[in-house]
């Protein structure tokens, strides 16, 4: 207990407390910190200029989450439906990109989306002669990068409840007169929604604070909160405002996590029936 507590204090409580304290000070005229207590950093967070970046970040993270959940759930569903002995193989390949560096994975998208990148070359090869599509340095490129990087989380989170689901539940629903669509909507989806929620929270929380992907795939002018915080600390040298932005971001993440845990508590009543073995 004690070592865990010490660990938590050293790595979580102290840094957070430092950031929080920092947010109440003022930026010095030549950078640095002026130790006078003020609330103006938090006021600035709600300035329309920055609030818009917050909203945009939430929108980008939300869109990436939505797309990742749809693709990830479908992939997990397909893996769970595959023959038992093949499932670990498919899961291995789903998680394989995680073994390479995040930066390298993101750079790969530059190679793909570049004006004369792989996709453009592919289009040329099938006979397209017009202007190369501008795909890199767009909102879409950022979303694609986020979806790609965090998809394995969703696949793993959704696979767990899907693979535990007793296949006879789906059969029972069909037997009682439900179509496959109704069976999915009323039986399979409700029983696997905790996995979706867990995966979605992963993607959203990791996306909304991300600064590498928007920097590399969004181009120089593209800013999410992560980039804003990065800039305050390393470019503009306004640590107190950077800290206030970071605190605001943490608050948003905490809200999302709280909503998810509320949801998980409500779903706790619906434990998933174990696989029933039948023979004969």
């Amino acid at each position: 207990m004690a070592p865990a507590l010490a660990w938590l204090t050293a790595l979580m409580v102290v840094p957070c407390a430092l950031v929080l304290t920092l947010a109440f000070f003022r930026r010095g005229i030549y950078g640095g910190i002026e130790y006078t207590v003020t609330l103006e950093n938090f006021g600035l967070v709600f300035d329309p200029l920055y609030a818009r970046i917050f909203l945009k970040s939430a929108y980008i993270a939300g869109t990436a989450t939505g797309i990742a959940v749809i693709i990830g759930y479908a992939a997990a569903y397909a893996i769970a439906a595959a023959p038992r002995r093949l499932q670990p193989v498919f899961l291995f390949f789903a998680v394989l990109p995680f073994w390479s560096n995040y930066l390298i994975r993101t750079y790969a998208w530059i190679v793909l989306l570049n004006r004369e990148g792989l996709i453009t070359q592919l289009l040329r090869w099938v006979g397209y002669t017009g202007e190369p599509p501008s795909m890199l340095y767009t909102e879409g490129a950022v979303i694609a990068g986020l979806v790609y990087n965090y998809l394995p989380f969703v696949i793993l989170a959704c696979y767990a409840p899907l693979s535990r689901l007793n296949p006879e539940l789906g059969e029972a629903s069909r037997d009682l007169g439900a179509s496959s669509v109704t069976t999915f909507r009323r039986i399979i989806l409700p029983l696997t929604v905790p996995g979706i929620a867990a995966g979605a929270v992963f993607v959203f929380v990791l996306s909304i604070g991300n600064f590498v992907t928007p920097a590399l795939l969004g181009g120089g002018r593209f800013q999410m909160i992560g980039n804003l915080v990065y800039d305050q600390f390393l470019t503009v040298n306004d640590w107190p405002f950077g800290a206030a932005l970071a605190i605001a971001l943490i608050a948003v993440m905490l809200l999302v996590l709280m909503a998810q845990s509320q949801f998980a508590d409500r779903a706790a009543g619906r434990t998933i029936e174990a696989r029933g073995g039948a023979d004969g």
């Binding site: 539940l169 059969e171 029972a172 037997d175 009682l176 009543g269 029936e273 029933g276 039948a278």
Partner: peptide, 13 residues
């Protein structure tokens, strides 16, 4: 035709 499953397959939720 209806089937009563060996595992009962009751909808847990």
């Amino acid at each position: 035709v209806n089937l009563m499953f060996q595992s009962y397959a009751l909808f847990p939720h």
